[in-house]
Simulated assay, not measured.
Amino acid sequence: MKKTEKRNAHRGAVYTLLCFLMVGFFACQSNSKNQSDFPDFDPKKDYFPEKVSIDHSIGFDIEYHNNYKTLHLFRHYNEVVDTVSFLLVQRGTPAPERVDLPVISIPVRKAVSLSTTHLGMFKILDAFDQLKGIERKQYVSNPTVIEMVDAGKIIEVEPSGTLNVETIIDMETEVVLGVGYPNSQNESFQQLQRLNIPVVLNADWQEIDLLGRAEWVKLLAVLLNKEALVNQKFAEIEEEFQSVLDLIAEKVKEAPLTITGIAQGDAWHVSGGKSFAYNMLKIARADYPWKDDNSTGSIKLSFETVYEIGLNADFWIAPGSARTLENIRERDPRYMDFKSYKNKTIYNVFGRNTEGGGNDYYETGVIEPHIVLKDVVKIFHPELLPDHQLVYYNQLK
């Protein structure tokens, strides 16, 4: 598979680099104390009998050694893949010598999350006790997290829109989990790193399929030494996901036509043919006018171009921020000409949202790809899942 080949190529390059670091940096200082400072350390013991394998994601990988793991993050921001690596060292054991990489002691006991996409991962790993800080409560859907913030057990570290570095330092934070966008290397992150507070940037948004995005839960699991639990949970997700794929392959004969997005002025951005959004439509067997496009993001088209197709499209998915048919009419009365408007076959991702702006699609939905897939199949082929009720998607009424 092309994705596997790409992932293996990334791994090979990283492993070569790590070998160079291990044998070539004789002059650099050790990241740890001498092994004699750890009298209970057994260099021959495998401290991680349970291990994870990365089978769907192209964004990260894990190497296991006796008492430490090496975490590699592959950032696909440009033509060349940028790789950032960390050493995850078991508490009470020494870090490897002559390896010039940031060290994180595991299992992590105090983590700060700067994205709601991480919260579903903490939930599935039963790890809210290790979550000590979040960006801000306003965008959170999980009631347990909200209650913990109100009780002072979890601190808002960006309540006014600016990251409070002093608060993160005072909390004795062991790792900050951020989101890896091209402009993520801001001064606050650099300041934390200079103070030896590791910043691990999650780039699950770069994944093109549902399981690849969900598999980032394994990154959190390796930080918490919860490999056994994540292997069990993720295997259950994979099994249910595959059962839906098998049902689609067996039963679906026709693919209904759908459009995506909504116009902003004279421009209409639709999902590209290599995007995460289109991949969901593809596996659910929906036809799509721009399926042969090579864009991994969105395509900018004119209003008239999409309008002509929208007149006869069976469905309309994710029309911006619209939550009702009235919202659609208010944007432009011409949308009332669409077949999907007349048949009320317009759907968005506001099945679970809060008044403050939280949306569980971007929280729990990330680690429930089997439920998201069922939602999409229910929309396009309702006869396949007669008992399924939409969870993350909503029908505009």
Rank of each mutant, 00 (worst) to 15 (best):
I299Q: 03
K344T: 12
R334K: 14
N183A: 07
Y77K: 02
I309Q: 15
N183H: 12
L311Q: 13
A284K: 02
E250I: 01
K342L: 06
N353T: 13
A27E: 14
V176E: 02
P256Y: 05
G297R: 08
H56F: 15
Q395V: 02
L257R: 05
W216M: 09
T16S: 14
R11P: 08
T173R: 11
D387F: 00
V377Y: 03
V176G: 11
W216D: 12
G161D: 00
I371Y: 01
Y288C: 04
K153D: 14
L220F: 12
Y288A: 04
I237C: 06
S302V: 05
L223T: 10
V14I: 11
I197A: 11
V217C: 14
T354V: 09
P382D: 06
S243Y: 08
V199M: 13
L131C: 08
S105P: 07
V217S: 14
Y341H: 10
I54C: 12
R213T: 05
N164A: 06
T116I: 07
G365F: 05
L396N: 02
V149S: 04
P382E: 05
S188F: 11
L257P: 01
S188R: 08
G297W: 11
S340D: 01
F241M: 02
Y341E: 07
T354S: 14
I317T: 06
S160P: 00
G261T: 08
E156R: 02
A221P: 12
H388R: 08
E135I: 00
A27S: 12
L17H: 14
V165F: 10
R285L: 03
K33F: 15
N394Y: 07
I169M: 14
T364M: 13
I146V: 13
Y15A: 15
L219G: 10
Q232N: 15
A263F: 12
A286M: 04
D332F: 11
D40P: 07
V108S: 06
Q90L: 02
N327K: 00
L163F: 11
I134P: 00
S57P: 06
L192P: 05
K123E: 15
